[in-house]
């Protein structure tokens, strides 16, 4: 049984994997203005992100996120490894992962899609554009797209 998230009265769960507090704060600001009610959880590094997803290390109560926003350059375990682990784990691989990073290098783009990222977005320098980008991610992945429930 599938379900459009829009019809769900429960707030959507978003996992933001990002080490830069500035970006975390910006994302929070943008999501706060958004129309979709959401719960944002932040993992500052790859290890923490995997613990959250697998409900380990103090995250036993963690909810399964509806969307993962993943930076590539992370301390301890970097975003590429996190992406690979999610996409090869039968329990996690259906969660949409949006790579949101500063890099516009061709090899990072190619590598991310090879690892089955759902989409790749370069963080715009301009605040207005950044707001626009996050809004669009939200609209597309949380409103428009139909995803399996579990």
């Amino acid at each position: 049984m599938t379900q459009n998230l829009l019809t769900n009265l429960e707030p959507v769960d978003i996992l933001l994997v990002e080490d830069n507090p500035g970006d975390v704060r910006l994302t929070i600001e943008v999501l706060r203005d958004g129309k979709v009610s959401n719960r944002l959880n932040v993992a500052p590094d790859g290890v923490e992100a995997m613990n959250y997803l697998r409900r380990r290390g103090g995250h036993s109560k963690a909810r399964r996120p509806d969307l993962v926003l993943l930076d590539l350059n992370l301390p301890r375990k970097d975003g590429r490894e996190v992406l690979a682990e999610i996409k090869t784990d039968p329990m996690l691989k259906r969660i949409p992962v949006v790579v949101l990073t500063t890099s516009s290098a061709e090899k990072d783009v190619v590598r991310s899609y090879d690892l089955q990222a759902n989409c790749y977005i370069t963080k715009p320098v301009d605040y207005a554009q950044f707001v626009n980008a996050v809004r669009q991610i939200q609209d597309f992945w949380l409103k428009l797209v139909k995803l399996p429930e579990e």
Partner: peptide, 20 residues
């Protein structure tokens, strides 16, 4: 140039946030 983008984005984005 890649790494310079990062702090630059912070400066620009927050200035704009303030301005807005």
């Amino acid at each position: 140039s890649h790494d310079l983008q990062e702090p630059l984005r912070m400066v620009a984005s927050y200035l704009q946030l303030i301005a807005q």
